[in-house]
Amino acid sequence: MADTSLTLALLDVALSRGGQPLVGGLDVTVGGGEALWLTGANGVGKTTLLLACAGLITPDEGRIEWSVDGALRSPPEVASYAAHRGPERDGLSLGEELAFWQRVSSDTASLGDRLATVGLTGRENTPVAGLSAGQRRRLSLARLMAASRPAWLMDEPLAGLDARGRALVERSVAEHIGAGGLAVIASHHPVALPGISARRLVLSA
């Protein structure tokens, strides 16, 4: 699925939010088979950095480059992003929501399989409005898997999850990276990824 020659390079990146400068001089390279854990206090710029990696905002200075085998790629080609609050819309059921995103990313797995993987079997008909925070995180994980991009950008993937949910996320991320993928994870909780080469990027004021 993923390519080990995948690289995310942040070259002297400066970011701001709403005109307020957050962080500057970011220089880091992450390759396939690696994880980068972003930590730091609230409001220091973790989400902004993820958004910039996803190409949803442009850095004030510097460049963010994705490449595969040395060839530059656009973020949508290689990355998928699990936001802190997902794109799910009240009014749809869990099954309809996930099936839509599977269809959009041409996912080959069945809806039942995806639900089973994230421990939501039998919940197809639960309305999105009735999902708990933890169930939304599981849905988010299923969406990441369905998108089948080599890079995962995750914003607080452990928030609201129970112990089994956390284990599920950590196992899934570890498997993804083990298969040559890459993950950038903003999280207040430590993400245990046994056997995975991981670095921690601390943003501090």
Partner: peptide, 14 residues
């Protein structure tokens, strides 16, 4: 003039 960024980044191996 853009004020200097408030945060700095450090990278630690784990």
């Amino acid at each position: 003039r853009r004020p200097a960024p408030v945060a700095t980044a450090t990278i630690e191996a784990m």
